[in-house]
């Protein structure tokens, strides 16, 4: 009885990790199908820290503006001040677990930060960088 309980608990606890692996590998396959190759964490990190000038307002934007450079710490929404939970999956196991969520935030945040949607290659690089944090 007791052993069974431990087994079930362990199984339940491991769900987030499977989910993450699933969501990320599903998306990586999708981005590869769209033309992305050799996803690279270093390229992802460089893009994460890169500054873009907004075409309309002229202000500097980057992923770090809201998420900060340390992804294990909470961030702060640049426009609303709302607290953002840490990005690193080791600190925040909910990250990178849902395909729908990842896609939504890629659209929203690429458009605001880069002024356009990210390419399949860029998104793959981002995932490569983020998934091992």
């Amino acid at each position: 009885m007791n052993r069974k309980l431990i087994g079930v608990t362990a199984l339940l606890l491991s769900i987030p990790f499977y989910a993450q692996a699933d969501a990320v590998s599903d998306l990586e396959a999708e981005y590869q199908a769209q033309g992305g190759t050799n996803f690279n964490a270093t390229a992802g990190e460089a893009l994460w820290n890169k500054e873009f000038i907004d075409a309309k307002k002229g202000d500097k934007r980057s992923c770090t503006k809201c998420h900060t450079a340390d992804l294990k710490k909470p961030g702060k929404h640049a426009r609303t001040g709302k607290a953002i939970e840490p990005m690193a999956p080791t600190v925040n196991p909910k990250r990178l677990t849902e395909v729908k969520q990842i896609k939504k935030w890629f659209v929203r945040n690429c458009k605001w930060t880069l002024g356009r949607e990210c390419t399949a290659q860029e998104k793959g690089d981002f995932l490569a960088y983020l998934k091992n944090l």
């Binding site: 309309k56 729908k100 896609k103 939504k104 659209v107 929203r108 458009k111 605001w112």
Partner: peptide
Amino acid sequence: FGEDLFLE
């Protein structure tokens, strides 16, 4: 307000 919400 300048963002694409991309909600279903």
